[in-house]
């Protein structure tokens, strides 16, 4: 293991143009992510916390190239991946994966679980036979705590927590090294939230995964993360270890987030 971080982000900017009029002229821009830099070490979890509109989701999307960054650099194991063409980026799709917030909309309602999870295998392991794929999907389901008999069911037959498990199985199918967890527990009951957080931690231990864990709830982020980034209005206002954030918050905004966590 070298000292090169798995992910390194330098001066990342994502601006969205505001257009107006018939000719769609650019009349302004929204600075969703405004000059953000951070690193993620292999096997670690970096938490990214902030309110809706803070730009935290945009960072996640930019990392997996669902959004083109306006400026800045993203390095994967020291290699710059910011300006690769779609084709050049393809190998990285196998290494970088994402888990979404909304378990109800993140699975195609017309496909069976076997098809949803198997799609990744179809793309990245084209030589697998149908049977091999099926058994691999069954293994993945077992890994996330589902049963092989769930293979031929449709998403609507599952609860929110189970769907999130299916989403995790899909992300794991390509054997990624890095997973962007985009508010994976925000839409779930607290009790289910605990199960999913535990599952993510177990998988990290077993497979040596690296996470960027995005959430608005500092309590969850503090629990799962080694290092925490606090984001407000497109900028990172505080970056420190999880303990440091809790014991010695520096920024007012961090204090506000801490204060908002319910005390029991």
């Amino acid at each position: 293991m070298t000292d090169t971080p798995l992910i390194k982000v330098e001066h990342l900017k994502v601006y969205f143009p505001i257009t107006s009029g018939v000719l769609q002229r650019k009349s302004g821009e929204v600075r969703a992510v405004d000059d953000v830099s951070f690193e993620i070490l292999r096997g670690k979890t970096v938490g990214l916390v902030g309110e809706s509109g803070s730009g935290k989701t945009t960072i996640g999307r930019a990392l997996i190239r669902l959004i083109e960054p306006t400026d800045g650099h993203i390095f994967y194991k020291g290699e710059e991946i910011t300006r690769l063409s779609a084709k050049e980026f393809r190998p990285y799709r196998k290494k970088i994966q994402i888990i979404f917030q909304d378990p109800y909309n993140s699975l195609n309602p017309r496909l069976t679980i076997a098809d949803i999870v198997g799609e990744a295998l179809e793309i990245h392991f084209p030589r697998m036979t149908r049977l091999q794929r099926r058994s691999r999907v069954a293994d993945l389901l077992a890994k996330v705590g589902l049963k092989p008999e769930h293979l031929d069911r449709y998403p609507h037959e599952f609860s929110g927590g189970q769907r999130q498990r299916i989403g995790i199985a899909r992300a794991l199918a390509v054997e990624p090294e890095f997973i962007v967890c985009d508010e994976p527990v925000s839409a779930l009951d607290v009790s289910v939230q605990a199960q999913i957080v535990n599952l993510l931690q177990d998988l990290q231990e077993e497979l040596g995964l690296t996470y960027l864990f995005i959430a608005h709830d500092l309590a969850v982020v503090e629990h799962i993360s080694d290092f925490v980034l606090v984001m407000n209005r497109g900028k990172i206002v505080e970056a420190a270890t999880a303990e440091e954030i809790y014991t010695h918050p520096q920024d007012d905004y961090t204090r506000k987030l801490l204060d908002a966590v319910p005390k029991l």
Binding site: S191, Q193, A194, A219, E222, E243, L264
Partner: peptide, 20 residues
């Protein structure tokens, strides 16, 4: 008890959250 325990708390970094 389980419902109360599964709420994540700040500054009590247990190894695992308690699931139900």
């Amino acid at each position: 008890r389980a419902l109360i325990d599964c709420v994540p708390r700040l500054g009590q970094k247990q190894r695992r959250l308690k699931a139900i």
